[in-house]
Design a protein around this nucleic acid. Structure first.
Lengths: 168, 168
DNA sequence: CCTCTCTTTCACTTTCTTTTGAAAGTTCAA
DNA sequence: TTGAACTTTCAAAAGAAAGTGAAAGAGAGG
């Protein structure tokens, strides 16, 4: 397979993976493109490679920067901004985990805690079933929270040098 | 908080969580509803509770059954079909993990393996960067695959009685 | 303080997804 | 075999999400 073809296929696969995970296709494609490029690209480069508009490029690059997956690079003497993506996939994974936890898990844990306090007679099987469901989900959410925290912190922690390198 | 209100809020939260995970909102809501109900519901019950059409109900219930998250219940002497959801959240989580792995991770691993074989001089920094990215992602994907397999199998395994119960 | 280049914004358009509801299909008791 | 009860399908409509491009903004350099 030729390099150009392989790149195109990777970008398209990563894009549809992203889409299934509730991430905008273009955002995932830009990320894929930047991961695969040795040097930073400008907005114009991205527009040209992916055939998308300037506005779309700008929006999604900004979002990737918010997620911490892409950095703005300023090249001395150049007016243009360049962009480059983290290429260590473990760092990418921990960034994504951190971000999704913050956006999704944290709010649902808050909600679940509130829902625990539903009033009513526990003899009533509806009340009982509800409380039990919520309690189960709540425990699960807390466990997941802990697990993600460990994962996210693994990069920074004592384990990094030893445990993480086993996986790499 | 009253039970009805709490249920409504749970259904709505679970629905929007699902939406962020690339799962159709209605499907997640039906799942939430069934998790919280002590007894199985009929299609009409679901339609009434969630204010959705018959067709929509039918489609999403069928999809939930495909995912293995909901069972069809036949009550002897009744013509109607009833539906009920798995209420053990750990089982729900392993079902979802199994299903998403099959749909998403397995295909991307296949693609990544193909992309490894890009031709070209490794001295070329574009080729080099591409190969390195793909290799990193591929390793990561295989590790993730193993991790999910362990998680999915944990339910059935020797650990279940000991390890899993610690978390519950 | 003007101009040139690049970035950001936003109202509008396009595309994709979901939902609806009526019609067709199925099943089963009588 | 019929028809009442229930389920499934599907084309059309509505709704949501993403993308466009022109115009406004920003700031460096003259």
């Amino acid at each position: 397979m030729k390099l150009a073809e392989a790149k195109a296929q990777f970008i398209q696969s990563w894009g549809s993976l992203g889409a299934q995970w509730g991430i905008n296709r273009t955002m995932a494609q830009i990320h894929a493109l930047l991961m695969v490029m040795p040097d930073p690209l400008s907005a114009d480069d991205i527009m040209a490679e992916l055939n998308i508009s300037r506005g779309n490029t700008n929006m999604n690059v900004r979002e990737l920067i918010n997620w911490g997956l892409v950095d703005r690079i300023l090249i001395p003497g150049e007016r243009k901004e360049y962009f480059s993506a983290e290429k260590d996939i473990w760092k990418v994974a921990t960034e994504i985990a951190r971000e999704r936890k913050r956006r999704e898990l944290d709010p649902i844990i808050k909600t679940l805690n509130q829902l625990q306090e539903v009033e009513g007679d526990v003899k009533d099987k509806h009340v009982k079933a509800f409380k039990e469901s919520i309690q189960g989900i709540n425990k699960f959410a807390h466990q997941t929270d802990k697990a993600i925290n460990s994962f996210v912190k693994a990069e920074e922690s004592w384990f990094y040098g030893t445990l993480m390198k086993l996986f790499k």
